[in-house]
Each structure stands twice: as C-alpha cells, then as structure tokens.
C-alpha cells in the first residue's frame, strides 16, 4: 500500500468505511427495503476498491452484476413477496441476545483471519496484483507487460485467459446457467402444459399455489392477479409448521 497517493488513500478509507457501514446497516436495519439499498452501497464501495486495485473491468462487472442486477432482483423480490411491510420477520419471539453467540464466533474468526493474513510470511502478490503470479506487486507494476495490462483495465488479459486457460470452466458455466434456468422454470412456473389435463397428483401435503409459486411467479401467470396476497398467507401458514 506504500505507493498509494494521498487521493488513493482518502478514497480507500472512504470506500472501506462505506462498505463496512453499509454491511452493518444491512444486518441491523429493521426494514428489509433499506437493507437491500444499503447492500447496494456495500457493492458499490467494493467496486470502488477494485478501481483502486487497478482492476476497472472487475469494478464494472461488480457494478453490473451485483450493484444493478442483484439489487434490482432483490427489490423486485421484496415487492412481490407481499403487500405487508416486511419488518422484523421473527417478531417479538426473538430472544434479546440472539446475536451474541454468532457475533462472538464471527468476530473471533475475523480476528483469527486478520492475524493470519498479517502474519509475516504471507505472500501478498496475488491479492494486490492483477493475475500476477509470484511477483512482488511493487516490482510487478514496473514490468512492461503488466503496465500494458493495467493500461486497458485488464480486459484483453481476462478475455485471453477466459478463452485459453479457463476455457473449460467458461464453457461449463454456460451449461450451468442453462440448467439453472431450467430449474427456475420448473420451480416457479404456475402450470405446465402437462398438468393442464388432470392436475398434478400429490404425494403428501399440498402447497396449493403456496410458497414456491406465490413468491416468484405471481406476476407471470394468466388471470390470477390477486394470488400474491393469498399466497403470502398460505405461505406463512405452511412455513410456520416446519
């Protein structure tokens, strides 16, 4: 970090404080909508940190995928979940010091992690650099090849890596996305053509348009506009049992 300019340092602390503050807000804010928006703050601050680490492409990807895509889906999810304000889902039954044990464990783990990362013989190369393998970052940034990578934000380099070294994982990711899409359709579609004729036979208790469908698909089905609120109630009922 020694070669950061003053501006860089100020930005780093600004982003870091925003990120941690946002993350704390996500956990502690009572309204889930505010939590979702604070999550956006966290994501954007992480993107800022990526910029400071000479990785503008990853920063852009971070904004596109997390900042825009994920947050919007999250807010849509909240909007579709029900018309009631979604405040403190556990309600009054939650014990007062529910956060104590997980909090202690989390902080102990964080302390251990920090201690381990700051241990003397830890090698920081890959964390600071951009796909730099086993080179000290201070030396690395002076290398001509690396400067070329930094100059175009690493896009060329990442592109070449995706289509050479990481070609197979890249291709597998496309199959993964296809399967995830099929799965999303199976889990959320209101009625399949197969089911139209006789209706679905049941093994045990029936959701009857409960949790899965109600949550994710009520805007997509035809002629069932008022399902959202009904489903919300039946969902609470069914989930309360288990």
């Amino acid at each position: 970090m020694e070669n950061l300019t003053l501006l860089n340092q100020i930005s780093f602390w600004l982003f870091a404080i925003m990120m941690i503050g946002g993350a704390l807000g996500v956990v502690f804010h009572k309204s889930i909508v505010y939590s979702a928006l604070l999550l956006l703050v966290t994501f954007l601050s992480i993107a800022g940190l990526f910029v400071l680490l000479n990785a503008p492409f990853i920063a852009a990807a971070q904004i596109l995928v997390y900042g825009v895509g994920l947050t919007i889906v999250l807010i849509f999810g909240i909007m579709l979940t029900g018309d009631k304000p979604f405040v403190d889902p556990v309600g009054q039954e939650r014990p007062k010091r529910y956060w104590l044990i997980p909090g202690v464990i989390a902080f102990a783990f964080m302390g251990f992690l920090l201690w381990s990362l700051l241990s003397p013989n830890y090698n920081f190369t890959a964390v600071n650099g951009l796909f730099l393998e086993r080179v000290q970052p201070s030396i690395a940034e002076t290398l001509p090849g690396v400067q070329a990578i930094i100059a175009d934000g690493g896009v060329t380099h990442i592109g070449l890596l995706l289509f050479s070294k990481y070609l197979l994982p890249f291709e597998l990711a496309s199959v993964l996305l296809l399967l995830a899409m099929i799965g999303a359709i199976i889990l959320s579609k209101r009625q399949f053509p197969e089911e139209e004729a006789e209706g679905e036979p049941h093994v045990s208790q029936d959701l009857d348009g409960g949790a899965m469908e109600g949550k994710s698909c009520c805007s997509l089905n035809e002629g069932n506009g008022n399902l959202a609120s009904e489903n919300f109630d039946s969902e609470k009922e069914t989930l309360g049992v288990h």
């Binding site: 993964l176 399967l179 093994v203 045990s204 208790q205």
Partner: peptide, 16 residues
C-alpha cells in the same frame, strides 16, 4: 450443487 438444489425441490407442489 445448483442442479442438486433444483432436483431436491423437484416435486414442487409437495411442501416437504
């Protein structure tokens, strides 16, 4: 994993 999550919920109308 992701296909397993989907498969586990394959009987989408069964609460279990």
């Amino acid at each position: 994993s992701i296909t397993s999550y989907i498969l586990a919920g394959y009987f989408r109308r069964t609460i279990k």
